[in-house]
Nucleic acid binder design. Structure first.
Length: 882
DNA sequence: CCATCCCGCCATTGG
DNA sequence: CCAATGGCGGGATGG
């Protein structure tokens, strides 16, 4: 697949018309429409009135297949072309187009034989969606005409309009498009995505989806019997707002209804269903949602569950439709969860991490039902801006005093920045320019490309996890570092009450994260950490046993030993073993590269380093590493919601996006803030304080052994954030400093980390303490062993693990383990380094609960490290260590 | 057989 | 009233 895209360019859709082939008509050509299609995109409007030609009488054999590929390519390319040429005139395009045509024709002739009959797959919604997305840039500039003319699209893509509606409906649910009028939609791309997701998450939390999911699962387990009264209790769920049932469509402030029409419709399914579906991902911890559960929740929401079979079936069907679109957007990917009963289809969120919803954010969830704020006579741009930078005015949270300064500076920056209008639709010219400025063309890369990349990266692998689950809770938190500007990281968990449940939520105190500081790592790596149960003990005061396992492809299945109840085992199978293997291989390869090409790596390092320095951050980090730690974490916590530490990052991103120019200034500010934070660190929250107390000294000092590293580091399979994230990062990075060539690694968003790089950065050690986890090379080394043993003992079916050699290699490469150390074979899957937010080191932690998986992300100046920790218990572990 | 999900009938809406 | 939308579920398809 890869395609040609780049070169060919192409353009447009026009081909259709040109394509001759008798035999192949592409389809119904509807009448003439094609002729001017080329410019279509350019033209702001589509023919308004027209009715679509629907007659679809296609030739019986419509061979659009041969062409289809080409078309796709072309379509994919078109956006890119646009970017390149950006303002170029049409003339150029025309030429390009022509070329493209030629290419196509050639292909056709050549390939004629090829393949494809219209097999069902080729008509799949997912594919169609890709084609559709390929036509528009992810981040359209205002300048472009981002109008979508339904008729044209349908025609060009050769599909019935009905299908287009399916796509548009889900895109609409994400606010990636909005309906303007009859046959017209406006394309917003991903500009609103983060806001939308935030809003959805919020609503999802409000709906207590988390709890609902748990109930459903619980029930399942207890299957047969069932009706416990509990359910009712739980069900009690939302009071307040949504209760009546459904909240309907969630809107964003900036984009309410453009065309009166849109709103009116009481949307029934797709749109709303899509939003709800997304919410489920956003609120659930492993971010994996099975179709079954989703369907039940979506159905049951209103009505008590009547397990209507047909209804259920229909729901599932719809969910597949939605899932296909979401998959095309790279927001989710299909996986399977294996439970005792067998494996069930499920989807895993691979989209951007949800920012913690900022409270202030004014996203409003407008529900049809309860139209609270209908005041929305369309927010002015200003409002939008506010929304974007909610914190601006006053903050609701309590901030740690030390942070105040930071905040101020940040706010100042924001103000400066604010001038740029946020509203998606209208971006001020200035903004645009800025954007243009960046190196990033990336922003506008054609969706296709991204997807492709993603897929590649996806090949990566799968994860298996088993969770053991008893109700124990472990409070484990990772250290956080907070660098910059906003201390968004809140203590994990602290904030959302909604989620809390009797059972497992970790007590805040536990949850609180201890701040650990990480110096900067050049690149981020995702790892999964397996903790040995025994160690876990050590680690967690509370939980007796806790095991962390990552599961990726490795077949960690074995963990049964872990105690008790395995509530479920989730297997992600993207590819299956093979894939896993491949992944490993890839990983290895990737890893190797650096080694091999030391030069390159070095260079990269340098670049990165330079970049950092430029930002000034680096210096600070290094110097103070030690200190850091502590304080930062705290500060971080204050502000935002628990779930992500990433918030900060995100904000930063926004920042950057908004104003790249000022980067330097910003950085400086940040840096200063950062310093302050460090110095001041005094914990404010009680919880936090407690935490600290509990955990004495520990973090500040890097004493590896002390803290037991029972962990096992495993690279995560795939970064949660799909390639898109990568791209974003790129953009950002580019903006801030230099563009890192590195990023262009073959696999989107994945960068191998080399030991040298790490060293250069001075990677801090991580230790795991009851409250925080820090990793140190030393500890890590030890850890693997442990986990391994653990696995073995328990091991079940586990397939052959990726070779230990691979693992060792990988870890060593990364510098996580000393050369001499051997890590037993086990699950290592892949390690990915995702380039990311240039600056901060923010880190988020989440609570660990037994039987649950928590993801922790540590944001470093040039990337982030992500772990997934699974708690379970096991017995074996003890001896291993040492 | 079964997980997916294409296809398109036909009810609703909007204009 | 007619076209645009979009719910919905039969039944095809690939594994």
């Amino acid at each position: 697949m890869q395609q040609a895209g780049g070169e060919m360019g192409t353009g447009d859709k026009e081909n259709h018309s040109s394509e001759p082939h008798s035999s192949v008509l592409k389809t119904p050509l509807k009448q003439a429409a094609t002729s001017h299609s080329v410019l279509t995109e350019i033209q702001p409007q589509c023919q308004p009135l027209t009715t679509p030609p629907k007659p679809k009488e296609m030739l019986p054999a419509d061979p659009w297949t041969p062409t289809s590929n080409l078309k796709m390519l072309i379509s994919a390319a078109s956006p890119e072309i646009r970017n390149r040429e950006q303002r170029r005139e049409l003339s150029n395009n025309a030429s390009v187009v022509l070329q493209a045509k030629h290419c196509l024709q050639e292909h056709l002739s050549g390939d004629e034989y090829e393949k494809t009959q219209p097999s069902r797959k080729e008509k799949s919604l997912g594919l169609l969606c890709h084609k559709f997305l390929a036509r528009y840039p992810d981040y359209p500039s205002t300048a472009e005409n981002n109008y979508i003319c339904l008729d044209e699209v349908a025609e060009e893509l050769n599909v019935e309009r009905r299908r287009i509606y399916d796509i548009l409906n889900v895109l609409e649910s994400l606010h990636m498009v909005s309906r303007l009028a009859k046959n017209r939609y406006a394309w917003h791309g991903r500009h609103n995505l983060s806001k939308t997701l935030q809003a959805l998450k919020k609503v999802g939390e409000a709906n207590k989806y988390t709890q609902q999911i748990q109930m459903i699962k619980k029930r399942e387990y207890e299957h047969e019997f069932d009706l416990d009264g509990e359910r009712n209790e739980d069900m009690a769920r939302s009071f307040g707002s949504n209760e009546h049932s459904e909240m309907s469509f969630v809107e964003l402030p900036g984009m309410e209804f453009r065309a009166a029409s849109v709103n009116s419709r009481k949307d029934k399914s797709l749109r709303v269903m899509s939003q709800k579906f997304v919410m489920l991902f956003l609120v659930s911890t492993p971010q994996i949602v099975s179709l079954e559960v989703a369907a039940k929740i979506l159905i049951g929401e209103d009505q008590l569950e009547d397990l209507d079979k047909s209804k259920f079936k229909t729901k599932i069907r719809r969910l597949y439709d939605i899932a296909n679109v979401l998959s095309s957007l790279a927001l989710i990917k299909k996986v399977h969860v294996t439970e005792e009963r067998g494996r069930k289809p499920a989807f895993k969120w691979t989209g951007p991490e949800v920012l913690p919803s900022t409270q202030d954010t004014k996203l409003e969830t407008t529900s049809t039902t309860c139209p609270p704020p209908i005041s929305e006579p369309i927010p002015s741009k200003e409002q939008c801006s506010k929304n974007l930078f909610p914190s601006r005015g006053k903050q609701n949270f309590t901030r740690h005093p030390s942070l105040i300064k930071l905040v101020k500076s940040i706010e100042n920056d924001r103000r400066k920045i604010q001038s740029a209008p946020t509203s998606p639709v209208k971006i001020s010219a200035s903004t645009q320019q800025d954007l243009a400025a960046f190196p990033s063309e990336m922003a506008q890369l054609p969706a296709m490309t991204k997807h492709q990349l993603e897929e590649q990266s996806k090949k990566a692998k799968e994860v298996k996890m088993k969770l053991s689950g008893s109700a124990l809770e472990c409070g484990l938190s990772l250290p956080e570092v907070v660098p910059k500007p906003e201390p968004p990281c809140t203590a994990a968990a602290v904030q959302q009450p909604a989620l809390t449940q009797p059972l497992s939520t970790c007590p805040p105190s536990h949850s609180s994260v201890s701040p650990v500081i990480l110096p900067h790592t050049p690149s981020g790596v995702s790892y999964t950490i397996y903790l040995h149960p025994s160690q876990a003990h050590t680690v967690t005061t509370y939980s007796p046993s806790f095991m962390l396992q990552p599961l990726p492809g490795a077949n960690v299945t074995g963990i049964k030993s872990i105690n008790s109840k395995v509530l479920n085992k989730i297997t992600t199978e993207e590819g299956d073993n093979q894939v896993a293997t491949d992944d490993v291989t890839k990983t290895l390869t990737t890893t190797e590269r650096p080694t091999i090409k030391s030069e390159t790596a070095s260079q990269q390092c340098l670049k990165r380093s330079q970049a950092l320095q430029e930002s000034h951050l680096i210096k600070r980090y290094r110097r103070d590493e030690e200190n850091l730690d502590t304080s930062l974490g705290d500060s971080t916590e204050n502000e935002r919601p628990p779930s992500n530490s990433s918030q900060m990052t995100h904000e930063m991103d926004n920042f950057h996006e908004k104003r790249q120019n000022k980067t330097e200034t910003l950085d400086q500010n940040m840096a200063s803030c950062y310093d302050q934070c460090r110095r001041e660190d005094i914990p404010e929250d009680e919880d936090k304080i407690k935490t600290k107390q509990d955990i004495p000294v520990a973090f500040a000092i890097p004493a590896p052994e002390t803290f037991f590293p029972s962990g096992y580091l495993i690279p995560l399979t795939q970064c949660a954030h799909g390639n898109k994230a990568g791209f974003l990062n790129k953009e950002k990075t580019g903006t801030c400093s230099l563009q890192h060539t590195t990023y262009s690694s073959p696999i989107a968003g994945v960068i191998p980390v080399t030991a040298s790089e790490l060293k250069a950065v001075n990677i801090p050690a991580f230790h795991i303490t009851p409250l925080n986890i820090m990793l140190s090379p030393t500890s890590i080394a030890a850890a693997p062993v442990l986990s391994n043993s653990c696995l073995n003992s328990s091991n079940t079916s586990s397939a052959p693990n990726p070779s230990s050699s691979v693992l060792n290699f990988t870890l060593q490469q990364v510098g996580l383990i000393p050369a001499g150390v051997q890590v037993p074979a086990n699950p290592v899957l892949q390690h990915m380094v995702v380039p990311s937010q240039p600056e901060n080191i923010s880190h988020s932690s989440e609570n660990f609960q037994e039987g649950k998986v928590s993801k922790t992300t540590l944001h470093l100046p040039h990337g982030w490290v992500e772990w997934e920790v699974y708690c379970g218990n096991s017995s074996t572990a003890g001896n291993i260590f040492n």
